[in-house]
Amino acid sequence: MSVLVNKDSKIIVQGFTGSEGTFHAEQMIEYGTNVVGGVTPGKGGQSHLDRPVFNTVEDAVKEAKADTSIIFVPPAFAADAIMEAADAGIKVIICITEGIPVADMIKAANYIKNKDCRLIGPNCPGVITPGEAKVGIMPGFVFKKGTVGIVSKSGTLTYEAADQVVKQGLGITTAIGIGGDPIIGTTTKEAVELLINDPETECVVMIGEIGGQLEADAANWYKASGSKKPIIGFIAGETAPAGRTMGHAGAIVGGSDDTAQAKKEIMRACGIHVVNSPAEIGKKVAEVMAK
């Protein structure tokens, strides 16, 4: 078991023939991911990377039975790409694009709300189920198969955590990069819930950062769920000044309850094993799992 993506996922790439789309589609295919085609409006009928190009997501769903999409469309058109995928019946939509206007995401989030789909991102590294499917931009070799699930807002910090976990002789079920924007499709709580409910996942690493309430919501859900599966948590940005955006558009301390310290306190109170140092994530996972 794993969550969101696996070897049977039928994946299409939106923005397939662009430079980003091409580069990462190649990497995904090389990893062994089941990429069944891609979408670039106006290039339908062509072939790219030995796979069919479709004009619309609807065509890709009809003809290639696509159920998962990864989006590399430029920011001005990315929200539209999300809505098109949702409309076509794609079940898992993973949006990598960074820099989508907030107003566009408000619209897209509202549009997909009552559709039977799950959006991951935007502004995220994607999702990987090691050995089965890499639907993202992460370096595949860092992730080895195992029983630890990872949820993170950040790309390179996800790789860092996975690397530390693997170096402890452990591995990953699925790593989910939920993205660092103010509006994202899947929240920390939803991603944690998926992993807690996954029978194969024995432990969850939850990496957050300053800004917003997502980690607190996840922590409160975890406590209420009564789950015995351990969660190891880290919040980046203890040293970030209030009121400044730290790279990720969503990473800004707005009040006293979204600082790193406040989030860590809530997480501890909810039974999460919080590490203060980002260098101790792997060690803590091994320690907790050995108990």
Binding site: S152, L157, A236, T239, M246, G247, S277, P278
Partner: peptide
Amino acid sequence: YVDLEGNVGCMVNGAGLAMATMDLIKQ
């Protein structure tokens, strides 16, 4: 780039890792 008051400069790829690196410098 965001200018801060401290004494250790850092150069990192990725916003999350950059924040984590700042935290590590402090520790």
